[in-house]
Every structure is written in structure tokens, then in C-alpha cells.
């Protein structure tokens, strides 16, 4: 299946983040480079210090996806595992009868990142955080599409995940940190086309979704 109409999207994975780099990746001309980190130097240091890898991925993806003067849109964030690094650290502290870090606790919950995004960008539109196992990407899209349809406006959608901490690695089949963002507008034909794809392939991976867009661009 191919997405024929224009899609406004952006994605960050280590070593592959611009449209050209994704295009090269799809033709096997470029691989991932796990040493690369998202560069969020455009965010003030006092704010930046609280951003996890997942948060940094979302902010760099957002930076290339929308303009600074973008009007506020409803937010839908989806992630399969969320901030599992922080959760494991907190559980370890509990087991060792140590005090829990209030910052880590606050930032470990599933909707913390969408909340932080609203605070940093001073957006007050509605926000939703989705977690749905290996259907998180497609469930998040369906949520964003539904909100766009019912609010009659575009919705800003991000999906993000990273490999699980060592202790849970046997439950993991996510191989690399990745963030995918798009503006979902139910009025556009592309949204309908993506909806058909995610309905027929509910366990679609972000990399395979990106391939659909690139095939279209080529």
C-alpha cells in the first residue's frame, strides 16, 4: 500500500533525522548510528536539564515539524513503554528502601511528556497520552484522527519509544530509540489513506509507516 497524498511528518532516530536522510535510509544508503543524540540546544538550559532522551527526541522532531508561530493544536502522544528507565530507577530505590526522587516520579508517568510539551510551548489545547502495547503507534493515530474529525481541526501527533532497560529486555523488540511526528488532519485524503493502512495493519512499526511516505515522495 502507498500513501498518495501529501503528509506533514518528521522523524528522529539516531543518525537519521532529515527528510533526505530518511530517503537515503529507505534506499539502504544510510544506517542508524546509535552514538547520535538529539540536539536540543534551542531549549533553555534550566528547562533542558529535565528532558530525558524520549523528551529530547520529541522536541527535535517537533522543531523540524512545526513553525515557531504554529497556532495551538490538540496534542496526542503515544508510546509503548514510555519512561521505563525512570520507573526502573524508582522501583530500584523502593527495593533498597531509599527515598524516591520527586522529579523522577513526576516525569515517569505516561502523560508527563505531553504535559511538559504544553508547558514549554505554552500551549493550552487538550492533551492525550496513549499506551497500547505494540499497537501504540496505530492506536495513537486513530485517536488523533478521531479528535481531528470531532474537533474539526488538525491534531499534532507524536509517537516515541526507546529500547527497554536491561532488566526487562526479554520483553523488548524495539531495537532503537525513535520518534515520529505528524500533523493529522481528517480533512486531508492522506489521513483517510493512513487510517486504512493502520486498520489493516494494527501492529505497524514506525519504520514501516515512514517507508510508506517515502515511497510516495519518490
Amino acid at each position: 500500500m502507498v500513501i498518495k497524498s501529501k503528509v506533514i511528518w518528521s522523524a528522529w532516530a539516531p543518525g537519521v533525522s532529515t527528510k533526505q536522510e530518511w530517503e537515503d535510509w529507505s534506499h539502504n544508503l544510510r544506517g542508524f548510528d546509535k552514538n547520535q543524540k538529539p540536539d536540543v540546544s534551542f531549549i533553555k538550559p534550566m528547562v533542558r536539564r529535565r528532558l530525558s532522551l524520549l523528551a529530547k527526541m520529541v522536541f527535535v522532531t517537533s522543531y523540524s515539524l512545526i513553525d515557531e508561530d504554529q497556532e495551538q493544536l490538540p496534542l496526542v502522544f503515544a508510546s509503548r513503554f514510555g519512561e521505563m528507565e525512570k520507573t526502573v530507577q524508582l522501583l530500584t530505590n523502593l527495593v533498597n528502601a531509599e527515598g524516591l526522587s520527586p522529579t523522577s516520579f513526576g516525569l515517569s508517568v505516561h502523560n508527563s511528556l505531553v504535559g511538559m510539551y504544553g508547558m514549554i510551548n505554552k500551549w493550552t489545547e487538550s492533551s492525550t497520552a496513549i499506551g497500547a502495547g505494540n499497537r501504540s503507534l496505530t492506536s495513537g493515530f486513530i485517536e488523533a484522527y478521531s479528535q481531528s474529525k470531532s474537533f474539526q481541526m488538525p491534531v499534532l501527533y507524536f509517537y516515541y519509544d526507546e529500547p527497554l532497560p536491561e532488566v526487562y529486555s526479554r520483553y523488548d523488540d524495539e531495537s532503537l530509540p525513535i520518534c515520529f511526528g505528524m500533523i493529522v488532519d481528517a480533512k486531508n485524503d492522506s489521513a483517510e489513506q493512513i487510517l486504512d493502512v493502520v486498520k489493516s495493519e494494527p501492529e505497524l512499526s514506525p519504520l514501516n509507516l515512514i517507508r510508506l511516505f517515502i515511497t510516495k515522495d519518490a
Binding site: E98, G99, P102, T103, G106
Partner: peptide
């Protein structure tokens, strides 16, 4: 205020 809580914990420990 989040720093206040965090610093309180660190000072206590």
C-alpha cells in the same frame, strides 16, 4: 518548587 522537593530529599540523604 520541584527543585525544592528534590533538594530536600538530597539534603536529607
Amino acid at each position: 518548587s520541584i527543585d525544592a522537593l528534590e533538594l530536600g530529599l538530597a539534603v536529607k540523604n
